[in-house]
Amino acid sequence: MEPVMAIVVGALFATSIYMMLRRSIVKLVIGLILLSNAANLLIFTVGGMKRGLPPLIDEGMKMPTGGWADPLPQALILTAIVISFGVLAFAVVLIHRAYEVVQEDDLDKMRSTDT
């Protein structure tokens, strides 16, 4: 399973960077969305993938018996999803406002603050 995931993660990173290098700000945001998904999938993969081994402790025991899947990467991903959800909602508002103010979707036309 890991090789497949590795290829998917790589493809996601490549796609997102391609999108971010486009001139349109909408594509820029799509690239950012893909990028955060790629990062989450990467954490999920390096956290170790196991099937059908919920990390639950049986009644009266102190440790789970047998193997168990590590729940922490999922907690990390969940937190990261929540954060990227908030940030991307902001980014959508930002490009909307920017489009209203600048009347332009093209990053190359937004250079007045560069030096």
Binding site: A89, F90, V92, V93, H96, R97, E100
Partner: peptide
């Protein structure tokens, strides 16, 4: 956020 977008 949603209300701000919609009102805009």
């Amino acid at each position: 956020i949603v209300l701000a977008l919609d009102e805009a």
